[in-house]
């Protein structure tokens, strides 16, 4: 990992409109948690449903998308990536540095608020907050790696990433059972299932399988992104 790359990427990511959007999203999540706590009181099923539907299924993937593409997409888009590529830093190292920033950002703005929202809604009961916090954490890293890879591979990473998140994990996941085994959401929910003591969350994927797949995806995506960065060509627009 390279400190300068980390610092520059961090500044580029958090300066400007992107940062406001991310902050807004975290605030909205927390606001909703507070609202629910005030209106519904403490209901662990509600907590599980809410965090599952809003955080794990929507907020975390979107976050991973915005941050994962944001750490390298704009640089490739306007061509300034050449400055980075002409330095004596190995490509995998560049990817690792950027992934570190992306993962940290996603964890800070998505996973931590999820954990806090869980605490707000259910306190420390049944390790619900912890369960969803961990799920969000792991999913954050996975999505960051996937979308970082997509950004290196194609200039339309955002659209393809969206298609994956919405259509694959959303629509198809509801209709085609097989698709659920290959869903990052399901893998992270299996972690929640393992951690929370009560039977509030169920995942279609067994813990061991989920763990392996998560590790494979994170490591594999990162490695492949490094390889693709080596042969990156700055072509024209579409």
């Amino acid at each position: 990992m390279n400190g300068t790359v980390v610092r520059l990427t961090y500044r580029a990511l958090l300066g400007g409109r992107r940062a406001w959007l991310l902050l807004l999203m975290s605030v909205v999540l927390l606001a909703m948690a507070v609202l629910l706590r005030l209106t519904v009181g403490v209901d662990h099923q509600v907590t599980a449903d809410f965090l599952g539907a809003v955080s794990v299924a929507a907020l975390v993937p979107l976050f991973g998308l915005i941050v994962g593409t944001g750490v390298i997409g704009p640089e490739i888009d306007d061509g300034s990536i050449v400055y980075l590529l002409s330095k004596p830093i190995s490509r995998p190292r560049i990817i690792l540095s950027k992934l570190a920033v992306a993962a940290t950002g996603t964890v800070l703005f998505a996973a931590v608020p999820t954990f806090v929202a869980g605490l707000v809604m259910s306190g420390t009961a049944d390790r619900i907050a912890l369960g969803f916090g961990v799920a969000a954490l792991v999913a954050s890293v996975a999505y960051s790696a996937i979308f970082l890879l997509l950004s290196v591979v194609t200039r339309h990473a955002v659209v393809y990433g969206l298609a994956y998140a919405l259509i694959w994990e959303g629509l198809l996941g509801s209709f085609v059972p097989g698709a659920r085994t290959l869903s990052v959401q399901q893998w992270s929910l299996s972690l929640t299932e393992a951690i929370t003591t009560r039977d509030l969350v169920s995942s279609d994927v067994r813990l061991a399988v989920a763990g392996v797949l998560l590790a494979v995806v994170i490591v594999g995506a990162t490695w492949y992104a490094g390889q693709r960065l080596r042969v990156l060509s700055l072509a024209g627009e579409e």
């Binding site: 909703m32 907020l59 915005i66 593409t69 969206l162």
Partner: peptide, 21 residues
Amino acid sequence: GFGVAAIITVLALSFAAVSAL
């Protein structure tokens, strides 16, 4: 790219959040 992400975030997140609530 950012425009795409921002639009989908606003639409998807608002829908998911409001529906859940």
